[in-house]
Amino acid sequence: MRSNELDFLINWGDTDMAGIVYYPNYFKWFDIAGHQFFRSCNLSPLSLEKERGIILPMIDARCTFEKPLFYDDIITVYTTVKEVNNKTIELNHEIFRQKERTGSGYELRGWVEKGEGGIKAVSIPKDIRALLEEDLHTTAQEVKPQYNA
Results as ranks from 00 to 15, higher is better:
1 M>C: 05
5 E>C: 14
6 L>A: 02
6 L>C: 02
7 D>H: 14
8 F>I: 01
10 I>G: 06
11 N>C: 12
12 W>I: 08
15 T>F: 03
16 D>S: 13
16 D>K: 10
17 M>I: 15
19 G>I: 02
19 G>Y: 00
20 I>C: 04
22 Y>K: 11
22 Y>W: 11
30 F>W: 01
31 D>I: 07
33 A>G: 09
33 A>V: 05
34 G>R: 03
35 H>F: 12
39 R>G: 09
42 N>A: 12
43 L>Y: 03
44 S>Q: 11
46 L>Y: 11
46 L>S: 14
47 S>G: 14
50 K>L: 15
52 R>W: 06
53 G>E: 05
53 G>A: 04
54 I>Y: 02
55 I>L: 11
59 I>C: 13
60 D>V: 02
62 R>V: 03
62 R>Y: 05
62 R>Q: 14
63 C>K: 02
63 C>Q: 07
65 F>P: 00
66 E>N: 03
69 L>W: 05
71 Y>A: 06
71 Y>T: 02
73 D>A: 09
74 I>C: 11
75 I>G: 05
76 T>N: 09
76 T>Y: 08
78 Y>C: 15
80 T>F: 05
81 V>W: 07
82 K>W: 04
82 K>P: 08
84 V>E: 07
87 K>A: 10
87 K>R: 08
89 I>S: 09
90 E>D: 10
91 L>S: 13
91 L>F: 12
94 E>Y: 07
94 E>M: 07
94 E>R: 12
96 F>R: 02
100 E>N: 09
102 T>Y: 08
106 Y>W: 10
106 Y>E: 02
106 Y>C: 13
107 E>L: 10
111 W>P: 03
117 G>N: 13
118 G>R: 02
118 G>M: 05
119 I>M: 13
120 K>Q: 03
122 V>T: 09
122 V>H: 04
125 P>H: 05
126 K>L: 10
126 K>T: 08
127 D>L: 12
127 D>M: 08
130 A>V: 11
131 L>C: 13
134 E>R: 12
134 E>A: 13
135 D>E: 15
135 D>I: 05
137 H>A: 13
139 T>M: 15
142 E>P: 09
142 E>L: 12
144 K>I: 06
146 Q>W: 03
148 N>L: 15
149 A>W: 03
149 A>I: 01
